[in-house]
Design a binder for these strands. Sequence first.
DNA 1: TCTGGGGTCCTAGGACCC
DNA 2: TCTGGGGTCCTAGGACCC
Length: 420
Amino acid sequence: MALALVDCDSFYASCERVFRPDLKNIPIVVLSNNDGCVIARSAEAKKLGIGMGVPWFKVKKSFLAQGGAVFSSNFTFYGDMSSRVMNILEGFVPRIEIYSIDEAFLDLDTLEQNYNLYDFSCHMRGLIKQWTGVPVRVGIAPTKTLTKIAINEVKRLNIPTKVHRLSTQNEIRHALANTPVNEVWGVGRKLTEHLNRAKIVNALQLADVDPQRIKRHFSIVLERTVRELRGQRCLNIEDNMSAKKQIVVSRSFGTRVINLEILKPIVSNFATRASEKLRNERQKCSQVSVFIRTSPFSDHKPQYSGHKTIELSTPTNDTRDILRAAKQALIPIFKSGYDYAKAGILLGRFSSESSKQYSLFKDPNEPKDNAKFMEYIDCLNNHETQIYFASQNTTQWSPMKQNMTSPRYTTNWYELPITN
DNA sequence: TCTGGGGTCCTAGGACCC
DNA sequence: TCTGGGGTCCTAGGACCC
């Protein structure tokens, strides 16, 4: 019984370093959209005390003064690097669950008999480093929740191979005793408060509570966590997660928006992007929601947040239908007199692209199936948008401030790295 | 001056049914 | 005058994750 978790070290920062070897040993941070907050830090940056999610403007001065390097986020690049890493992993094991852009769970159950899993993982780690330049850590344990603990042990014990296996009861209990309960996967801020009040402060204490009791006093979710900590597998490798249940496109604005005429084309851009994602998933939606809100941080200014959901009588993935619904949702929630800081669109209630559900009030013979049309548009827009809808803003996708982006080294011919 | 984006799952409570 | 009990389905919101 063994699973592994492979986790890329400070992923975005590591990606930036791959093509900038001059940044070796230099602290690196990567910022969110609008260069708002820090979303990735290299080990050196963590050592300088740069916290996860801190607003950039608060640490900018001291970080740069200490010689740090900063990048705006470049998700095209990170996404491509991620798929390179995942492809390698897929070659190693029969089953893999890509859990996030920088993490994957591997099913090692069938390999356990024929391989030394520790050596196997070290080998895998070496090849990933050699082929992509990305350093990873590997945690091996009987359950997903324990692989997370194993990964943390790599850091706590400063294990040079970056691979750690928890297999005996002793090893597991020892690791749990050294893990604060808030570091357990599935235990967030609220639960930590509750557990601490019940005098449960480390993972071992949590594991030693009767799961039934946990279920009664907390939830079924935490009960599963407890069982997983005890080595009982409750969460399996999900290698078929592709069917999304919701698609969101949202952005904070680099400059506040006060005017509906500016907001409309931006929301149209979001709607267009969301529709593309939906077609990519081979799904249709019958629910479109739009939200807009002011900044919760400008507490001296009037606050407002509005959202509206439009139900569609027929499921669709046609951009034109979704644009229409987005506009229909946006107009009634817009109120003038506010500085809007963020907007977004959510698509929900999915059904498969292939099944057709006609509305009771619509003529089923109406030639509404314009799938081909959208296919052509997607094809033309595949790499760089070339065809826009009239309601979009073509000059600015969203009012963003971002000016420290690295080149798209691996996905654009014009931005390939050049060596002298 | 400046504070991310995109997801999942679970639960409580309301609406509705017989 | 007197107003049940048991069930399903749906939704909004909370908590969590990276």
